[in-house]
């Protein structure tokens, strides 16, 4: 069950590599921001799963809305001449690392609990 998302990631990458789809260079920056948002949401989802507070509605809506909003923010920034995508990069980057830190802590705790049980 836990391998399913990993399999999905690999499958998606394979489709992306094989499919002859290419986006215009001008939209490349939006895509990178969208990727960051998606990455953040996926890690958030993993964290929520580990904390047993996962809600698929929140997760899927967050995934779609965050991705689109990030791209929109980058677009808006370009129109206004303000590097708003930097804000998105920083915000998502910080959250990404926070999520990773929480995941790491939970993983450590579980590992400790598991290895600690036999001893007493």
């Amino acid at each position: 069950m836990i391998w399913l998302p990993v399999l999905g990631l690999i499958l998606g990458a394979a489709i992306g590599l094989v499919a002859n789809v290419s986006i215009p260079v001008a939209y490349s920056s939006y895509l990178s921001i969208a990727i960051l948002a998606a990455l953040d949401t996926v890690f958030g989802g993993i964290r929520a799963t580990l904390e047993k507070s996962f809600d698929s509605t929140v997760f899927l809506s967050g995934f779609i809305v965050n991705t689109l909003l990030a791209a929109l923010l980058a677009f808006l920034g370009e129109q206004l001449g303000v590097d708003l995508y930097l804000a998105a990069v920083v915000a998502f980057g910080v959250r990404l690392f926070q999520n990773l830190a929480v995941i790491r802590r939970i993983a450590f705790r579980r590992w400790k609990e598991r290895s600690g049980k036999p001893m007493g």
Binding site: L7, G12, L17, I35, T41, F54, F59, F63
Partner: peptide
């Protein structure tokens, strides 16, 4: 959660592959 995460991962993988290319 497995289905949702898989779906999201699929899309994420696709986008990453695009960007990589």
């Amino acid at each position: 959660w497995a289905v949702s995460l898989t779906l999201a991962s699929l899309v994420l993988g696709f986008m990453m592959a695009l960007q990589y290319r």
